[in-house]
Design a protein around this nucleic acid. Sequence first.
RNA 1: GGUACCAUGGCCGAGUGGCUAGGCAGCGGUCUGCAAAACCGUGUACAGCAGUUCGACUCUGCUUGGUACCUCCA
Length: 490
Amino acid sequence: MQHNLFIYNTLSRTKESFQPLHPPHVGMYVCGPTVYGEPHLGHARSAITFDLLFRYLLFLEYKVRYVRNITDVGHLENDADEGEDKIAKKARLEELEPMEVVQHYTNSYHAMMDKLNVSKPSIEPHASGHIMEQIEMIQQILDAGFAYESNGSVYFDVEKYSQSHKYGILSGRILEDLIDNTRTLDGQNEKRRNVDFALWKNAQPEHIMRWKSPWGAGFPGWHMECSAMSCKYLGEVFDIHGGGMDLLFPHHEAEIAQSTVCHHKIPAKYWMHNNMITLSGQKMGKSLGNAITLEQFFTGNHPLLEKAYHPMTIRFFMLQAHYRSPLDFSNEALQAAEKGLQRLLKAVELLDKLKSSETSSVNVGEIEKAVFEALDDDLNSPIAIANLFEAVRTINLVQENKETLTEADLQRLKDMMHGVLFDILGLLPATSSAGDNQLVEKLMALIMEIRANARTNKDWATSDLLRDKLAASGISIKDTKDGATWEVGS
RNA sequence: GGUACCAUGGCCGAGUGGCUAGGCAGCGGUCUGCAAAACCGUGUACAGCAGUUCGACUCUGCUUGGUACCUCCA
C-alpha cells in the first residue's frame, strides 16, 4: 500500500509531506527529560508521541537514528542567572553526589518508559558527557562574533544575530516585543540585553557541578547540549527535531540561533511539538507542583486517583487524543480508555478463533486504508483507533455469523490489527492476569472443574457459593457459551 | 502587557462548507438457572452575536470564556 506521510512542521505551521534528507535514513532528535525528579504524565506524553513517530517510520521501512538526550546539567532554578544548577541544588538537599541523583532519576525514567512500552532510542546522550563538544561550539559562536564574555560567563548576542538572521523564526516571536515585554529578572547585569541567553555560566564557589573552560570553571548554558549533541550524532542538518510545546521558546529558538551561527543552516528540517497534559485545565508540571508521577498512576497512590491504572491504559488514553491537542486528565476519561482498550484487545484475541467463509461481506481493505490514511495525516492516532473499532465490530459480527470474511481477508485483518495495535501504536497484548503462578493456575482449574460439575447437576447453590466466595477474594468468574473463565480483578 | 492557540452531545475526544467520527456512560435487545461479563442496536452536539454563502459546527469579524509561551519545564 502506498504511504504518503504528512507531518505538521512548526517551522512552517503547515502539514508538510515528509521527505527525508537522505532516504532511507532518517535522523530524529527529541528533547528528553531533565533528571531531577520522578517522571510524570507529561514525560509520558512526549515519549509516547515520538515513540509513535519512531515506530511508524520504522514500519514505513525507514532506517531511523533516534537520539533522545538526558539533561543532567545546565538547568537553572527560577531565579535564573543567579540561581544554582537544578541537579546540584537537589543534590545538596539530599546530600548525594550530583551524579547519584542523575542516575537515580534516570533509572526511574527508564523503568517507567519500559512499563509504557516506549522503545529505547538509538542513542541516549547525557549533557554531562558532552561538555567538550559544547565548549567547542561556544568558542565557534564567540569567534563568529555572535557572543560575548562577561564575568566568566558567555552570552549569545541576540540583537547582533537578528541583524543578519531571523530570531524568532520558529516561535513567531518578534525581537522588539521580547525586549519590551520580557519581565524584569534578577541578575541581568552581566548581560547586554535581557533577551540574550547564556551559553556558558560561571560557577559560584558553592556550585558543585563545574567544568573547566577557556572562560573559567562553570557549566554549559540552557540550550547548548541539544545543539552540540544533535550535531555530533545526526550531523549539522537532520530530519526531525521534536519536543514538548513548552520547549518551543526559548529552548528550540535558541538551538536554531546557535546552530545557525555555527553551520549557517537551521539544524532540522521538521520541527514537531507535542501538546501538554492538563489537570483541571491547567498544565501538569513539576514546577507547578501539580504533577502526578507515573509511579503513582501505576500504583493508584495519589489522592486524585480513584484507582491504579495499567501502563497500557495510560498509553491508550494518550493515543486517543491527537498529539498536538491538549489532553485533560480525569479518572473518568482514563476508565473509559481502559474499557475501550479491553474491547479492542478482546477482539484481537477473538480474531484467531474466527471461521473463514467463501466470500467476504466486509471490505477489509477499506478499513485498512482508513487506518493508514489517518496515520499518514500527521499521526492522527485517534482516527486510526476509531477505525480499529470499526474492525472490532466486524470481528464480533463475524463471530455471530452476521458478517463473513474469506481466509485471505481474515489474515489481512489479523496482520493489520497486530501491525497497527502492537507494532505502531506500541500497545501490548492482553496478558492472563495470574499466569505467573502455576500453583494458583492448578488450584483454580480444580475449583472451576468442581463448579462446572455442580452446574451440570444444576446444583446452583454450590455454583453460586463458589462464584461469590471467589468474588470476595478478588477473582471474578465469567460464564460464557464455551464454559466459564476466571480472572483476577473486575 | 506581548505572542500563539482553543471553545464540539453526560464525560473524553476527532473532523468537515451540504453526507455516521470513535470510546466511555445511559437506554433497548441477545445470551444466561439467576447474575455478571460479553456482543448487537441506539444519540444529530459543535460558546454567544453579526456577516459571507443556495447552504456553516466548519470561512470572516466582534464578544465572552479558557490554555500555553514570554522564566527551568515533556
